[in-house]
Structures are given as structure tokens and as C-alpha cells.
Amino acid sequence: MSILEVRNLSKSYGKGDNLVKAVDDVSFTVEEGDFVAIIGASGSGKSTLLHMIGGVDNPSSGEIIVDGEDITKYNSDKLAIFRREKVGIIYQFYNLIPILTVQENITLPCDLAKKEINQDYLKELIEMLGLSDRVKHLPNQLSGGQQQRVAIGRALFGQPKIILADEPTGNLDKKAGDEIVKLLEVAHAKYRQTIIIVTHDISIAQHAQRIITFEDGKIIKDERREEHEDSDEAQSH
């Protein structure tokens, strides 16, 4: 069953001679539980695509159907609720709230939705993220890798249908970056969440089951890497 369907999606900036098509008539489908990497050079439009799927940017035309509903038809309130319930977004620069502690940042979407916080799940998640001794810290007291793990925690905590990661390792060194990708893989395996990751780093994309290559706002290649799933499963068992 497809969790996401993108139909003829376009996003352009400017007018006339200055018209730039960041995303140009793109269509594809993502199955539930899939781990997809979108790769491409910087400026290829891959991040714009991700942001539109996450409901933080508006397309110029086209449809984005998540879980059977076209989110481009949503008003701002419905879109906000969509963002806190259906997707979790991880940015390159973490974008945590500086005045909230690690734990508060992680539970933020749940608090916004006024949902009861599942303490066992929270504890398990924080342990998995390796942040057990950091829960009361503020983001600025953490390293970049730790901050990104908090961002992952925030994206995972609401158990959304899709996790969207926008260059999650772009601001980190190799070691911290690898850890982040591992975490995403573990989350994918453990919670069976759909993950879409945008990156320009092919070695990171290698962790995904499917790689979509982007260039000038268009998909130029879309390949499935069957062997990855096996190794992934082997790892988690």
C-alpha cells in the first residue's frame, strides 16, 4: 500500500525570464515502511520536494497524497495538524527550540497535540538515541551530533507515518553522521516507519532501499536496492 503519492508536483520561483523551476512536474509513489533516499547535486530541488511533502512549503501545482489525502488542499490549521501527526521532519541544522530541554523538545509535537505522553516509549526512545544523561539539558549544551539525535527523537516520538530527513548529516563530521544514519536505520527496522532522506552523499544513500536521483527539478533515476533490505534485516535481528 502506498503511503505517499506525488502527482505532477511543481514548484517555481520568480517570473518571466527569472523563472526558476525548483521542482518540475515530478510524480512518484512511496510504499509504507520504505526507506527512500533522494540524491542530487545542491540546487537540484530535492530539499524543496521534501519540504513540500512535509507541508512546510507550498507547491506551485500538483498533488501530494499522504495516507489517502491530498495535503495541498489543506488550510493552514489542517496542515499544522498534519505536520504534527503524520510527518516528522529532521533538518540539517537541527532547529530545536533553544529554551526547551532535550526531553521537552522531543515531546513537543505530542504536547502540541495535547496527547498523553507514553513515558515507557519516551524512555526507550531516549535510550536508543543515547541521550539518557542529557534529558534536562538545553540544546546549546549538546554537541551537533547530539542535537541532531534530539531532532530525530522529536521526529520519531509522535510515531508519524513518514520521517523526512533533509541532509541530516550535512552539518556533522563523518563519525557523527554515520551514527545518525545508523539511528535512522534502527528506527526504520524497529518501528517500521517510512523514511525519506535527502542527501548529496552517496555513501549515506547506500543505506536506503530505494534511491531516487534528482537533477534540475526532475527525477532522472529511480532504483530499488533489494540486497539492502536483507542486510538491514540481518542487522536488526
Binding site: S76, D77, A80, R83, I89, L96, P109, L112
Partner: peptide
């Protein structure tokens, strides 16, 4: 503004 944008991106509605 940025903090607000982040709050919105994780699902804070206009009303909230």
C-alpha cells in the same frame, strides 16, 4: 521568527 517557524513545522497551528 525562526523559533516560531520551527514550532509551526512540528505542527503548531495558527490558533495555538
Amino acid at each position: 521568527a525562526k523559533e516560531f517557524a520551527v514550532l509551526k513545522s512540528v505542527g503548531m497551528t495558527e490558533k495555538e
